[in-house]
Amino acid sequence: MTPSNDAGRLAGGVVVALFVAAQLFGVATSPAEAGMGHLQKIMYVHVPAAWAAFLAFGIVFIMSILYLVRRRESHDLLAASAAQVGVVLTGLTLALGSIWGRPTWGVWWTWDPRLTSTAVLFVIFVGYLALRSFVDEPQQRARWSAAVGILGFLNVPIVYMSVRWWRTLHQPSSSPATVDDPYVWGLRINAVVFIIVMAYLIRRLYQASILQRKVEALEEERALATEGSHV
């Protein structure tokens, strides 16, 4: 295949290896937690997934603003790629949180402000992706989705602050002061690796979307050419 594709596959292999290594490190270095035992290890996937999702929606936000200012298609395509990754990561956060919640809280789900606002964030960006597939005209699609991307991002600080602003079942954010040493590095390393995974996925989706646009442009050209030859 093309050189960039080979490089992409190699990078993909490295990213997977990093992910496996970081997870093994987290699991191997942390003793059973005093209260919840080994359930604590879900922290190494649930929390990094949430942080990486916030970051992905941050990219959507910045790229949407840049698109509205500069009107460059690349900004729109990058925003769309980041939104796809953000939706997957938010879905993961919800699913993993639910799996963690059942044994610790006793319930899979409850409509507390943290869980509700996260679900709203998920739905907003699923809507963002749905909007993109409904609108065919590229510039109109880019403008509308930029508006949704910017407004949708406003929910991220609400999700983050929800545990401080309102009463929730979900605990407030942990810090190194509330987390003992054996768990801190496992969490940090996995957070960094999740961000690398996020960046990798966004890049691959972005490259794919550029190829997609090229194909569309060629098809349009060909359609015009055959039309012209008939006249």
């Binding site: 003793p31 005093a34 209260g35 919840m36 610790t104 409850t110 605990q171």
Partner: peptide, 21 residues
């Protein structure tokens, strides 16, 4: 009809010989 336990934001290593279960 429904009992939920609220976990704090603390994660502590167990003391010597302590088993969470």
């Amino acid at each position: 009809t429904n009992l939920m336990v609220k976990h704090s934001n603390e994660y502590r290593a167990p003391e010597e010989g302590q088993r969470p279960q």
